[in-house]
Write a protein that binds this DNA or RNA. Structure first.
Length: 220
DNA sequence: GACGCAGACTGTGTTACGTCA
DNA sequence: AATGACGTAACACAGTCTGCG
């Protein structure tokens, strides 16, 4: 049997939350979390996994005999789960040939392999969505805090009646009137109404704060 | 008994393919 | 021969049910 590669081409979600990179309050499950990682830890009854019910190979017609026996449920063995996970890491969908091969290998029915992959895809997606939700909540909190800081700074500057920040024009090396500086509300880039490049080397407190605190786009 | 996990099922939408007028 | 309508099978997905620990 071929040894499957460890590194996967599967879904990988790496999250770094601005301002939370080393926060002790940030659960390690959120930062750098790989949802494809098989949860480790002592599985209850680790080796007892057998078919909880009798093997289902020869009784697929029994389950729907009108008032037949209740739906039976198998429990995959650790080895079966491991192989399925490895396969899932390689590709999230199976073509009929792969499904058949895997089913033979696992001594399962192709339908069971198919169902397992369907569930695995669905639950991966669910986990990913939950993580993204959590991430966005934290990001929102970070941005809110940043917004408060900036508002406070603006208030302080207003209270001090500090003159507008001085920015040198890259062309003339003359100070630009700060009244031409604007903050784009959508992209949060500082621009000037008269010369958009004027701020490239801006060094005032306000602009430096605005630029250094610019939050990177989340890599989701 | 409540709860979460995971295997299984159901309903629906999409796509590919064959048939026929 | 080319084309569009139609039926069917296979598949993926979302939602749900349900057995089990």
């Amino acid at each position: 049997m071929a040894v499957l590669p460890r590194s996967s081409s599967s879904l990988e979600l790496t999250i770094s939350v601005p301002g939370f990179s080393s926060s002790p309050s940030l659960p390690s499950s959120v930062k750098d979390l790989d949802i494809n990682q098989v949860p480790s830890g002592g599985e209850a009854g680790a080796d007892h996994e057998e078919w909880i019910t009798a093997s289902m190979e020869d009784e697929e017609e029994l389950s729907n005999g009108g008032s037949g026996p209740p739906r039976k449920k198998l429990r995959l063995t650790k080895e079966q789960s491991r192989l399925l996970e490895e396969s899932f890491r390689q590709h999230h969908t199976l073509n009929p040939k792969q499904k058949e091969t895997l089913a033979l290998q696992l001594k399962l029915k192709p339908r069971q392999v198919e169902v397992w992959f369907q569930n695995r895809r669905a639950r991966s997606k669910l986990k990913q969505t939950e993580m993204e939700c959590e991430y966005l909540k934290r990001w929102f909190g970070s941005l809110s805090e940043q917004n408060r800081r900036l508002q406070r700074e603006v208030e302080e500057l207003r209270a001090m009646k500090v003159g507008p920040p001085t920015v040198l024009s890259p062309h003339s090396c003359e100070p630009l009137p700060a009244s031409t500086l604007t903050m784009c509300p959508r992209c949060e880039r500082v621009t000037t109404t008269s010369n958009a490049t004027a701020l490239d080397k801006g060094s005032t407190k306000t602009t430096a704060a605005a630029l250094s605190s610019k939050v990177p786009t989340p890599a989701l």
